[in-house]
């Protein structure tokens, strides 16, 4: 099944080799995207010149453009894309719902509200050296998932994924209403600024924002690494997973918290960029099957690649004007998602 069948009447050795080949392929794709994207822009530069050791960095204009002007933004795209795609995989397995996205549980609305409040009420631009908008959006994201998690664990022992899903969707609407209210109070400039933020934008011009997001993303990545096998079993149902020796509640908590952390950090870095968390995991599953041990890392790599490519398009298509990258991903993602919904949304029947 799929273009690169990971499993089909093969020996264990062949199966393992194929798995590695596929993973390395996805990784190379991401590396290639990160290396090539900074070459594209108003000023043409050459990769050979960038890495030419005979020219000092101070004299190497190409290297300066590559490393200072363009690479931070490319890396931000890779981190955000990878984090959102991986979080999408984890949440889809946790909720046993292939249509879940990293924003299903209220993260994006919480983050938007946080950003909106700071923009509208003109709170200080930085707090302890960290710009207030990303910080507020990160806090808003975590506050939203905290509320959702609290609701899902309130009624009975364990975690109700039904409540998780419904509370997330409800909170998304509620927050959206509050956002509209705040926006009503805002003046024209603030509204404009807020709308631009909500569209998603990777306007990162230094390495500093990456360094703030990195610790959170690393913690999430560490948690993700231990999850895939348990996620496979969770998709069989909680009882089946428990009967195969999985600590279900611990797995659910870990999955939920790490996916929220990754999403919160990604949104703080690039705004709520939609559709990556759903199209990339689905595309990967179409290509290599459903096993989360392979889908999770491959999705992170493909998510990184996808967003880097989209962002390159966003800043060059109508150059010198710059499109918000969220518009590009949504314009690609929307039709693709509808196609998925119609052709395989409910699964084969």
């Amino acid at each position: 099944m799929g273009l690169l069948p990971v499993v089909a009447g093969v020996t264990a050795g062949a199966r393992r080799r194929r798995v590695w080949a596929v993973q390395i392929g996805f990784l190379l794709l991401a590396v290639l995207a990160v290396l090539c994207a900074p070459l594209v822009g108003p000023t043409a530069i050459s990769l050979r010149q960038v890495f030419d050791p005979t020219i000092a960095f101070a004299d190497n204009v190409d290297a300066q453009i590559f490393f200072i002007a363009r690479l931070p933004r490319t890396l931000a795209g890779a981190l955000v894309g990878g984090a959102l795609a991986a979080a999408g995989v984890v949440l889809q397995a946790l909720l046993r719902n292939p249509l879940a996205t990293p924003f299903t549980l209220g993260v994006s609305a919480g983050a938007s509200l946080g950003a909106m409040l700071v923009i509208t009420f003109g709170l200080p631009l930085t707090l302890a050296g960290i710009p207030a908008v990303p910080l507020a959006s990160f806090v808003g994201a975590l506050a939203a998932v905290g509320v959702v998690y609290g609701l899902a664990t309130m009624r009975r022992q364990g975690l109700s994924t039904n409540v998780l899903l419904l509370a997330g969707v409800t909170l998304n609407s509620l927050f959206s209403a509050i956002i509209l209210f705040v926006q009503y109070l805002a003046d024209f400039t603030q509204s404009f600024q807020a709308i631009r933020w909500v569209m998603g934008n990777l306007d990162v011009s230094s390495y500093q924002p990456l360094l703030w997001a990195l610790p959170m993303l690393l913690v999430a990545a560490g948690a993700f690494a231990g999850l895939p096998r348990a996620l496979n079993l969770l998709t069989l149902g909680t009882d089946s997973a428990a009967a195969r020796g999985i600590d279900v509640l611990r797995t659910q908590r870990l999955a939920f918290v790490s996916a929220s952390l990754a999403t919160g950090a990604a949104v703080a870095l690039g705004g709520p960029i939609g559709f990556i968390g759903i199209i990339v995991p689905h595309l990967v599953r179409l290509l290599i099957g459903a096993d989360h041990r392979f889908v999770l890392p491959a999705s992170a790599c493909l998510g990184a690649t996808f967003l880097v490519v989209c962002d390159t398009a966003a800043r060059t298509l109508l150059s010198p004007m710059e499109l918000p990258v969220g518009v590009i991903t949504a314009m690609l993602g929307g039709p693709f998602f509808l196609w998925l919904l119609v052709t395989r949304g409910g699964g084969p029947r």
């Binding site: 499993v7 889809q92 292939p98 496979n232 079993l233 998709t235 195969r244 099957g289 096993d291």
Partner: peptide
């Protein structure tokens, strides 16, 4: 047993082997 993703029959059967695998170990021959 209702699955939401397209696991193969072998995938599902191999999930029975998970209690025997060390962390990060893939199924052997």
């Amino acid at each position: 047993t209702e699955l939401v993703f397209d696991y193969t029959v072998l995938d599902v059967t191999l999930m029975g082997r998970y209690p025997h695998l060390r962390p990060f170990e893939l199924e052997g021959p």
